[in-house]
Computed example of a mutant assay.
Amino acid sequence: MTSAQVNSGVALVTGASRNIGRAIALRLAGLGYDIAVHVGKDLASGEETAAEIRALNRRAEVFSADLSDPASCKALVSNALSAFGRLDVLVNNAAVRPESPFEEITLAEWRQVMALALDAPFFVSQAAVAPLSRSPVASIVHIGGLTGHTGAQHRAHVITAKAGLIGLTKAMAHDLAAKAIRVNCVVPGLIETARVGGHAAQPAHHAKTANLLGYRGGADDVAGAVAYLCAPENRYLTGQTLHVNGGAYLP
């Protein structure tokens, strides 16, 4: 996938401190976007992302926000606007993906996953509608999950949230088309990433899933798909779900 350089623009990427989020932020910076780097608490990792963006001669600012709090979601967008003065692209990447047997998932665990993986994209996107509607290249990209389509053991909360994100993508595409805001979803699958806290263990369902290409993808593969959807020359794409999984799932 190739994408043309933009003359100028600002992208907000949630969960941009590492892995897929960082790769997305760097890819968009390479296309000419300045980047609002969202982190939860890990400001040091966020600053590492920002330093790499600045090395590409793009501006980067780091913003910490608790996306489980609707007020913090709105404040994140407001703070990004105060810093950059505009918003052209929003990538809702932040999420948590715990694993627990169905009967052991607590209400608190259920609500935490829903808050970060489904509610936060809703609230951040809602806050971003006004500034995005002023952009000539407005684009929102949600980051979904393979198991939201295939199912898996011990992930009832994650699967439910990621499946809901597909519905949210379609609904937003309908509602925001009149404002010239495109809304799409990228669904990664079988992607090699460093686990939070440095743990190397991959999710249990990965061991049971194969793909046609025979190897795991990388964060850059997901970032390329996001860049493709955000590129101005692809402005005829909205309401779509783009799977990046090496052929592990064929919709």
Rank of each mutant, 00 (worst) to 15 (best):
G189D: 01
V186Q: 10
S135F: 11
H205W: 13
P203L: 04
K170N: 06
V124N: 02
T150M: 12
V196G: 04
L176K: 10
H142R: 07
T209S: 04
A171H: 12
T241A: 00
T238D: 00
S133R: 10
D221I: 09
N234Y: 13
S133L: 06
A171W: 08
V183Y: 02
V186H: 07
A194G: 10
A127L: 12
E192W: 07
P203M: 01
R155C: 10
N211K: 08
V129A: 05
L168F: 03
I181C: 09
G214T: 11
A161I: 07
V124R: 01
T209H: 05
A130M: 11
H199S: 12
R235W: 00
A210V: 15
A180H: 09
H142V: 13
H149L: 14
P188E: 02
P136I: 10
S139T: 15
P232I: 01
G224V: 07
P136E: 13
G197V: 15
G217L: 09
T169V: 05
H174E: 09
T209V: 15
L146I: 09
A194F: 04
E233C: 07
H174C: 11
V158H: 08
S125M: 11
D220S: 15
H206F: 14
T150K: 07
Y215R: 15
H157Y: 06
S139R: 14
A178V: 13
G218C: 08
A207F: 14
A138C: 14
P203W: 03
A127K: 05
L190R: 08
A178F: 07
A161Y: 08
S135C: 11
P203G: 05
A161L: 11
L212R: 15
A171C: 13
Y236F: 15
A200R: 15
Y228A: 03
A227K: 02
Y228Q: 13
V158N: 01
V186D: 04
I191C: 03
A138G: 07
V196F: 11
A223C: 02
H157W: 02
P131A: 07
G164F: 01
T169Y: 01
H149C: 01
K208A: 03
M172R: 03
A219G: 04
T241G: 00
P136V: 12
A194H: 06
L242D: 00
P232E: 01
I140N: 02
A128Q: 09
H199P: 07
P203Y: 05
V186L: 11
T241K: 09
L229N: 01
V186K: 01
T238I: 00
L146F: 10
L237A: 08
V124Q: 03
V137N: 04
H149A: 04
I181D: 02
Q240D: 01
A180W: 05
L132Y: 07
A161P: 05
A210W: 06
H149S: 11
A207G: 14
L165T: 00
V137G: 06
F123W: 14
D221W: 12
H205M: 05
T150E: 09
V186I: 12
L176T: 04
R134Y: 03
V183R: 06
G189Y: 00
Y228I: 12
T150F: 13
I143W: 02
K170E: 08
